[in-house]
Every structure is written in C-alpha cells, then in structure tokens.
Write a protein that binds this DNA or RNA. Structure first.
Ligand code: ZN
Ligand code: ZN
Ligand code: ZN
Ligand code: ZN
Lengths: 169, 169
DNA sequence: CGTATAATGTTATGTTATAACATTTACAAG
DNA sequence: CTTGTAAATGTTATAACATAACATTATACG
C-alpha cells in the first residue's frame, strides 16, 4: 500500500516530499516485521536502519559508521556490517552492488522479493522497480538457457524524472 | 558468430570444452578490435586479457596481479586496474559488480552492448545472456517510470545447466 | 631530431569488508 | 531467582578491493 514517496506506487521519490514520514513509516513497519518474525530490532540495528533511511540515496557502511559515531561514539565497522546483514536477512534493507551501498527496502514485510533498482546519476536517488513483465521476461530468458535462478541483481543507472533534462527521452 | 564455448550461441560453457580455443579466439578478436579502433593492445593489456580468459570464471584484479607476478614480476595493482579500464572501455572485458571481478566479453567487436550475466553458484562459470525480450521489457519498464536509462547491470546467480541437480527446475 | 601524447612505473593511501575471539545481554528451564 | 545457553555486541586486527599523485619511458608525428 505505501510507496517510497507517498505518491502512487510507481512514483519516483520527489525532491521536496515529506521524508520524515518515509522514515517513521519505515521504522514502524520494521518493528512489525521483526515482531512477526520473532527477531529483535535492537538499538544498533534500529540506529543503522534510521541512518539508511535518512534519504533515498544509498549510503555506504562507513558513512553509517560516521553518523553513529558523530557524537563521540566508538562503534566499529564490524558492528555496522552485522547490523546490515541482519537487516538484509530480514528484508528491511537492500544492498546496491554497483555502489557498495545500502538502501531501505520500499516493500518491507512483503514476500522476500527480488528487487530491481533505478539509480539517478544526478541526484543519487534510488527507487525500487517492481515490474512483473520484466520479472517474467527475466525468468523466461534464464529458463531457456537451462539455468536455475537463485537470486538476481538488476541495477539501472540513468536520470530520474526530476533530473531528466527537458527534451531528453 | 563465435560463442563462449563453441556450441550454438546460447550454450553455457561446458566443463570439458576446448578452452584453449576460447582464449586464442578471444585474443585474435581483441587484436582486430584494437586495430579497428586504433588503440594499442600493449604487452600488459594483453597479459591481463589472457589472465581474464584463463577460464569462464570471473577473476579478481588481485588474482590477475598474482598471476602476472608469479614468475617474480613486480607489477603493481594500479597497472592491473589501468589495463582493466582500457579493456572495459574497448568492450573486451566486463566487470561483474556482485563479485568485484572481471570476465572476458563474449561478444567483442559487436556494438558496445549492455550485457546480462548468468553466474553459477556452484562452479563459478559465468555466461553472457543476450535476450532481446529481456532488454525490451527492461527498457519498457524503465520508460514507464519516466527514467532515462544510461547503463544497466543484470547479474543472475544460480545453477548452470551442468551443475543443476537432477529433478530441479 | 624534438616535442607532444600515451603508456607505464612507483609509492602511498583510501575504501570496503571480514576473521577471530572476548564480553555482555536476553531469556527460559529448573 | 539462579544458572545455563544462545544471541548479540564489543574489540582488535587484517584482508580485499581500488585510486591518487607524480616520475619515467615509449610512441608517433611534424
Ligand atoms: Zn522519502
Ligand atoms: Zn535525480
Ligand atoms: Zn572456454
Ligand atoms: Zn556450474
């Protein structure tokens, strides 16, 4: 039902949207997911999730580290990576392989979905793309080659609707 | 016309194939590409390309480095990365983002193509997937969201035909 | 030749990620 | 409420991947 930026489901996050709401929605849903899965959203995991949700731009593990340590903390990289692993295992965060960075999942709680991403080269904003036809085409193409699919990475780089120069396709 | 493992174009590289031929084909085509593009396939670039083509398993930059330095060489990481950059710029090698590794392009000389990859979790063998329907579905899905595509990464992990347990889909 | 450009060599450092082990915390069985 | 135990966290060190900056050498072309 919810979407990354309160518009209709396929909307790309808009520059001026009420992002505080994205964050609070995300945290609320994360609590629910963890409760239903009987896993614990501990302090550090929650703080890492908050850091990830500070924007729709994927964030590096060491950026998260800096944030957590901004007030004189002593958190170590390992702890960040462990929290991220937990968040990914529970479908709360995705890793963007092409950026070595992480982003909050826009569809928490929904079935462990294989996500595709649109990454804006200009503003960095990254959105999940849920395209059934694309998924079908992918499964079809792979099956034709006798390959058994296990997981997939689809990361598309370009210009988001808000950064596309006028007149461009 | 050629394919990664001498079968018909969509065949996945077979375990026992004559891989020496893959390598020599690749080097010959690379020479041709470089000649036609008026760029130089220098000694180190050629050696890196050979290293990449030692198998159909993506190879890390530091693995290449070890190979080149096996006989007491003193090549530095920077030189490997520069050679790889050249090879990628000229469409001779692809980077596999999910593995931080590199693999020889199966379609050298053909138009700078956006490739998709099938990566076997068992044997590591990685093949390029050229699926027009997939490409179309991708372009379509992206366009619908008002996104201007620039480049794309598609990396599918699973089991190749030769590693798929019997009875598995 | 002389000179500009491309390529390579060299040193140092930045960035991302994990290994290994110690300590603390949560939680339930007794 | 202890006490065992599994989960989570803390800590130190290091592995793995990648680039910056600058010096030197090779190539091409007038
Ligand atoms: Zn938002
Ligand atoms: Zn943008
Ligand atoms: Zn081969
Ligand atoms: Zn295989």
């Amino acid at each position: 039902m919810t979407s990354s930026a309160h518009g209709h489901p396929s909307a790309f996050p808009k520059p001026g949207h009420n992002h505080a709401r994205c964050t609070s929605d995300a945290l609320r849903r994360a609590e629910a997911v963890c409760a239903s899965r009987k896993v614990r959203l501990t302090e550090i995991r929650r703080r890492v999730l908050e850091a990830v949700w500070q924007s729709h731009v994927p964030v590096g593990a060491y950026d998260i580290l800096s944030q957590l340590n901004a007030g004189g903390g002593r958190t170590a990289p390992m702890q960040i990576y462990r929290a991220l692993e937990f968040l990914m295992d529970n479908g709360l965060v995705h890793r963007i392989a092409s950026l070595n960075a992480f982003i909050g999942c826009a569809h928490m709680g929904e079935d462990n979905h294989a996500a595709q991403f649109l990454i804006c080269r200009s503003c960095g904003t990254t959105a999940e793309l849920e395209s059934a036809p694309l998924k079908r085409a992918l499964i079809q193409a792979v099956a034709e080659r006798g390959f058994t699919i296990d997981s997939q990475i689809v990361e598309i780089s370009g210009f988001c609707p808000h950064c596309t120069p006028k007149g461009r396709t």
